[in-house]
């Protein structure tokens, strides 16, 4: 199933990385990174830990400060733009407008413990998007139903299992109707028997929506099933880029082969 390529219509990719550099102190994590994610495309990033995959997601969510280069979302600069050849930071208000289109699901779920499950989901739609509480509530219950947790709406998040918490976190991200969804190792903190329920929900979402997804995962079967494209990272650079079928069956690069051999 190819992505619905509306790039042809608007001429703009969903996300564009242009000469992106990220350093932590003297440590260069991403080194002159360039790639595009088309609209509706699902791209999985794989590679050894420390290769900069998670950093990419965090940069898109503006959780990290971009050291160099530019990121564009829907053709609009995210945090920095070029004015007369100089790189300047955007105003927080402008950045906020762009990040509203982006949702993220974290490895550690990060549900708000001071709110019920449903409140977790309705908080941002009501207070960021300005929806009415009934509207947000109805939509929240729909989403909870979709992730199979309709009966947990009034429950306290800490009473749920890890898998359930992560499904709530997915519903919470979707409640903002994101154009782009970032999935950051969403099953890595789960007990093995809970991984399936979370991946099942994500597979359904991938099948039924055309949300652009940028995924970091160690679940190679899942990556193969849902992605349109897989990027292999090492040392802050893209080593190889291919469709999942090619990447997981006949990778060309030696580094990819040894990595996949180690994890599969």
């Amino acid at each position: 199933m190819p992505p619905t390529d509306s790039t042809a219509v608007t001429g703009q990719p969903a996300i564009r990385f242009e000469n992106v550099v990220k350093k932590f102190g003297d440590n260069t994590v991403l080194d002159d990174l360039n790639f595009d994610v088309r609209r509706g495309e699902r791209v999985t990033l794989i590679g050894p830990s420390g290769s900069g995959k998670t950093t990419i997601l965090r940069l898109v969510m503006t959780l990290e400060h971009l050291t160099g280069g530019y990121i564009y979302v829907d053709g609009e600069p995210l945090t920095h733009l070029e004015v007369n050849g100089r790189r300047v930071e955007r105003r927080p208000k402008d950045i906020a407008r762009s990040t509203q289109k982006i949702g993220m699901v974290f490895q550690q779920f990060n549900l708000f413990p001071n709110m019920s499950v449903l409140e977790n989901i309705t908080e941002a739609p009501v207070h960021v998007l300005g929806r009415s509480s009934e509207e947000a509530r109805t939509r929240g219950l729909e989403l909870l139903d979709m992730v199979g947790l309709a009966d947990k709406a009034e429950e306290h998040p800490t009473r749920l299992s890890g898998g359930q918490q992560q499904r709530v976190a997915i519903a919470r991200a979707l409640a903002m109707d994101p154009e782009i969804l970032l999935l950051d190792e969403v099953t890595s903190a789960l007990d093995p028997e809970l991984v399936g329920e979370v991946l099942g929900v994500l597979r359904d979402i991938a099948k039924s929506t055309d949300i652009t997804m940028l995924i970091v995962t160690h679940e190679m079967q899942f990556a193969q099933d849902v992605s349109h494209r897989v990027l292999m990272f090492d040392g802050g650079k893209i080593v190889e880029e291919a469709s999942p079928d090619v990447m997981f069956t006949s990778p060309t690069h030696e580094r990819t082969r040894s990595f996949l051999q180690a994890v599969l």
């Binding site: 990040t99 993220m104 990060n110 001071n114 207070h127 960021v128 903002m176």
Partner: peptide
Amino acid sequence: VPKGQWEAATALSLSPVRKLRKIIWPQ
């Protein structure tokens, strides 16, 4: 308060004031 709570609030585009008042302060 765990860093993840700040990050989750940022990912939901909550304003700095609302983030502090509704998410971080109660914890």
